[in-house]
Design a protein around this nucleic acid. Structure first.
Lengths: 229, 229
DNA sequence: TTGACGTGGTGTCGGTTCGACACTAAGGTT
DNA sequence: AACCTTAGTGTCGAACCGACACCACGTCAA
């Protein structure tokens, strides 16, 4: 089966920059390409948009198929349309970025016999196509967004300590923050719920666990709120 | 001449939300559609992406062809990909927003025998396709961006008074600002150059003219600056 | 010419927020 | 019991913020 059009059309793809945070670093998920062009190179998970799915659906499908990732924070980033960004034929790519809780998503490593791996954002290999540019844009967006929207929580497990939360901000922003000032600020947002639990199995004083107050957040969001870290 | 592909592909279009500011309001440029679907309805200027042009180029070409607008601030907004957003066939639209100096762009009203007109953003007619959603997104983006990037200047002539600049911010943000505080803030940015000129032909004391200091701005931008109104 | 009108242009002050900064508490390990 | 590691907490000065009112200057009409 094939389709004929009066004028040529670019192919339409989606590509996703998936961020995760582990003990050391902010990382991006990459897939090693098996076929030309750029066979053997690392690339962003992605693929062509199907006829009957929206762009968001295509992005989620690719995340599921290529990395076994589901139910994550996902937001459209930018659409890349340079004429020769794919050497085969013209492909326009609508890109997304996703935030995953690494602790809960052990990311199926090799679907379709494909190799997948996490790379620290300041130690990336050379990427296929214009994917380096896409990652740069995603990092810039994440840095901007984290300042005025509470998306840092998306990188942490449901229950987290304040020190973990501070580390998220430090890794994303690439700068150290003052512990006391940080705690003052997050307390001032009123968006954290203090739990009656502490972390387990640590070789030092255990820290109190908190959780993000989504209900209050949604309420504030509707009223045209503010939020700053 | 026609083209055949193995799989169906959505058509790819660009649409532009063009903002301009006149004495009264922040306005959006619309074009009246001559053909079905939505014949007679107002719509955003836009059209299909050609094979050999980037998305940005397509947006600029459509602005030129449909409204005679050139050399404006143009930035990609979002890509809309709902499956049935065009009743004829699937069309994915990469949208842009543009800021024009209404004073200098008298916008050729009717190219291609098409009718074009400016509408105040809180008095828009019903629009074709999902263009209302696109305009909403553009307004939200403009409101966000104007706070931390000096794009207000793009809506004014090269030389402007501080009162005019304040009006830009008031119209874009939809709220009144304090004159003295506003002047303190813009002075503090160091991005305005005070000219040895005053406005002409006004029936009251003439205001001093200023211009935006692009060189200093570009320098600050590279150093990772800050800016807030 | 003078007075009225309309917009331009300017400074202070109290409240809030900001960042810098250091010690004790708790729990586990040896 | 001593020690090691991380948790948790408050103050103070500086900068910033928003609220607020009056005189200056130019035009126009009487």
């Amino acid at each position: 089966m094939s389709v004929t059009y009066k004028h040529p059309r670019p192919a339409l793809a989606v590509d996703c920059v998936v961020f995760g945070l582990d003990e050391e670093d902010l990382k991006v998920l990459l897939i090693r390409r098996g076929v030309e062009p750029f066979a053997g190179r690392w690339a962003l998970p992605g693929g062509f948009v199907h006829e009957d799915e929206t762009l968001d659906e295509a992005a989620r499908r690719e995340l599921r198929e290529e990395a076994g990732i589901e139910k994550v924070y996902l937001e459209q980033l930018y659409t890349f349309g340079a004429v020769d960004r794919d050497p085969r034929e013209r492909v326009v790519s609508v890109t997304y970025y996703a935030l995953v809780k690494l602790s809960e998503h052990a990311v199926r490593a090799a679907t379709d016999a494909r190799e997948a791996a996490w790379f620290a954002i300041d130690d990336l290999p050379r990427l296929a196509f214009d994917h380096e540019e896409i990652v740069d844009k995603a990092i810039a967006r994440l840095r901007g967004k984290v300042r005025y929207a509470p998306i840092g929580f998306e990188l942490l497990p449901k229950k987290f300590t304040l020190t973990q939360l501070q580390r998220v901000y430090e890794k994303v922003l690439g700068q150290e923050l003052d512990k006391r000032n940080f705690r003052k600020k997050v307390a001032a947002t009123g968006l954290l719920i203090e739990l009656d639990e502490v972390e387990q199995d640590v070789a030092h004083r255990a820290a109190r666990l908190y959780t993000f107050d989504e209900k209050t957040y949604r309420k504030l969001e509707k009223e045209g709120f503010l939020f700053e870290i």
